[in-house]
Each structure stands twice: as C-alpha cells, then as structure tokens.
Design a protein around this nucleic acid. Structure first.
Lengths: 199, 199
DNA sequence: GTCTATAGGAAGATAGAC
DNA sequence: GTCTATCTTCCTATAGAC
C-alpha cells in the first residue's frame, strides 16, 4: 500500500466505511473494521482522518445527494404528468427494493449524526437535500407538463419528501412490499390531484 | 436498596433507561449509565436482566403504544370530521414539539433494534402498532362522522402513518416548525378529501 | 508518509463474599 | 438477593521506528 496518496486513501476509507455500514450497520463500522475492509493497517486511519467523526462527516457527505440524480433522469422521458411521476417514484422505489440495507444506513447515519454536536449540522443538511431533491423533481414535472401545483411548492415538496421517507422507513422496518406499493400508488394519485393548468 | 423485589427493580431500570436515552441517546444508555440513573450498583443489572438486549426489549415494549391513547381521546369531542382530524393531529404534533427528544429516541430504538436478530421482531411490532393506531383513528373518525374512506382502509392507514412519521422525522432533524405545520395542514386537507357519505 | 506496537479507557458480563 | 471487585474484550487514538 505504499505510494498511495493520503487523498486517495481518504476516498478508499470512505468507500470501505460505506460497504461496512451496509453490511454490518453504522455501529459495526469501527476504525478497525473499516481499515480491514480497505486492506490498510490500523495506523493508516489517523493520518488520513483526524478522528472517527471526521470519517463519518465524509461518509454522510458522500451518501447525501446520490438519490436526486436517479430520479431526475427518469423525468426526461416522454409521457404525461402521471406517467412521469410514476416513473420517477418507481425508479426510487426499485432502488429501495434492491438495496434496502443501503437505505437503512441513511436512517442510521441521521440518528447517529443528530446526537453529536459536531455532526448535527450534517444531518440537517442531509434532510435539506431531500427537500431540495423533492422541490426540483416537482418543478421539473410541472414545467415539462405545463401545469402548476396548487399548494405552495415548499409545502408540497415537504409533504412529498416526508411521505416517501416515511413509506420507506416503514417498509424497511416492517417489510410488506405489496402494501408499500399500494400506498405509493395512493401517494402518486393524491399528488397528481394537486395541479391546475399553467397560466 | 435492600428489600426491593427484582420485579420492581426491573421496572425502575426500564424507566431509568428511558430517561437516559432521552437525555443522552440510545448509545449513551450503557449498563453503567442506566444503573447510575436508577441509583443501583452495577451488579444489580444482571440479576434483573439476562443481558442488555433483554433490557432494550423491555424498553421498546414500554415505549410502543403510548401514542395511540392520546390521539383517540381527542377524537371523542364534538365537531365535524375536519375539526376532529385536526384536533387529533394537533395533539400528536404538540407532543412532538414539547418532547422532541422522546420522539428521537423512538427512531433511534428502531434503527438499533432492526440490526439485532433478537430485536428485529420488536422493531417490526413497533411499526405495526403505528399502523394499528392509524387504522383505529381513521375508523373512529369515519364512524363518528358517518362517512366512508374511499381508499381501502389498510392503504389509507399506511399512507397517513407514513406521512406523519416522515414529517416528524424531518422536523426532528431539520427543525423548521412553521414549515412542518404548513405541511401538516396540507396532509389534513388531503386526507379529508378521501371521503364519501356512508351508505 | 507508513507502519507496528501499545497506551488508556470503557464496554458487557461474571465470581464470589455476604 | 445483593453488592464489590474483577475479567475479558473491544474501542479510539498515539508513540515512535523506519
């Protein structure tokens, strides 16, 4: 492992940490487990990061924002408002079904971060980025289909982001995929009703 | 502390554990911190509980189900469907505003439990109890106001439980009470639209 | 920068006197 | 049952040779 810059090592450790968290949970991501996953000696950790908290900081930053791109992409296709909304939601939901542990990690990280003064700000930003993603998806939808949302956009964005977050958390905990799908359909129908033709 | 039955001690330890968790988070609730909070010696722990996991089991069971009663009570008053729904939601939300740390603990406990094979079943039951609470509130509302819900009740119950859970988690993480209130109002309006006169 | 070795402490659980 | 003292293990972080 000689001749690898500390910057590259930092990235490798962040990626290794995410893999360990997906496999064993945030609690399982000890410095030892992370360096082992990355194939580095324990001592490498502390000249890449000042502390474990600094690693977590980078992990949260790396995970935040992965979700948005996937959904925005699905909105580019053809079809009416309903088709696009369902395609976007479907893409998100398929990811939840395929990688539940990855999503579990995001909830764990939030709870972990919210309790540490140094990380609480990051948890806040994590959820603000969800709100932003929701806002931008709704904006893109309305624009491409020539409609306007009847509630104020910030309120509707919060509503939909919370709804999807809540449905995901419930599914991850309780595991009824069929019921989750039905509730998601209801969500799509409900949101679709909140439009009027654009001016 | 002599002459206190092991059963009573168990309850005292569970209550102490909840206090510690509210103050310092689930991660702060070590056996040492819990017995200190309860004013007991460390050794007392392991003839009250076989393990720390057994304590957590009791903590989750004690916390689950506290929410339902408060909301059902508010539904007994007079008023139309809208008034009652808003009163019930308002009562829940006031509790979130007054005791945010208590609610944070429930999210932390879920994540903690979901990762341990021995406790995962309890996390599942915790969320099933949310679904049940949601179902019973919606049932009571419909009956007392002589209306029927247009979506199947299990779907609507899942929808509303997730929505409220998601809004709560977002508020606890991000902290915008005003925006949360606005989104909650939108939620109430939306749900109210899903009725038709009873047969 | 890189690594080995270890410090230093906190965790859950137990042994054994009373 | 009750408690003190202790075992064992695992953690984060550092010291110091190369």
């Amino acid at each position: 492992m000689a001749r690898v810059s500390a910057d590259v090592r930092r990235e490798l450790l962040v990626e290794a940490a995410i893999r360990v968290m997906i496999r064993d949970g945030v609690g399982g991501a000890t410095t030892r487990a992370v360096v082992a996953e990355a194939g580095m000696p324990l001592g490498a950790f502390h000249y890449c990061f000042r502390s474990k908290e600094e690693l977590l900081e980078n992990v949260i930053a790396a995970i935040t924002g992965h979700t948005l791109d996937r959904m925005l992409e699905k909105l580019k296709g053809p079809g009416g408002l309903g088709d696009k909304l369902r395609a976007g939601l479907g893409a998100y939901w398929q990811h939840v079904l395929d990688h539940p542990d990855e999503h579990r990690v995001t909830y764990e990280l939030t709870q972990y971060a919210v309790r540490r003064p140094g990380l609480a700000e990051l948890a806040k930003r994590q959820y603000e980025s969800y709100l932003e993603a929701s806002t931008r998806v709704l904006e893109a939808l309305a624009e491409s289909c020539d409609v306007t949302w009847t509630p104020p956009l910030p309120v509707l964005a919060r509503y939909t982001a919370s709804l999807i977050d809540g449905l995901t958390l419930l599914y991850l905990t309780e595991g009824d995929a069929e019921a989750a799908g039905a509730a998601l359909d209801l969500a799509a129908t409900q949101v679709l009703g909140l439009t009027r033709p654009a001016d």
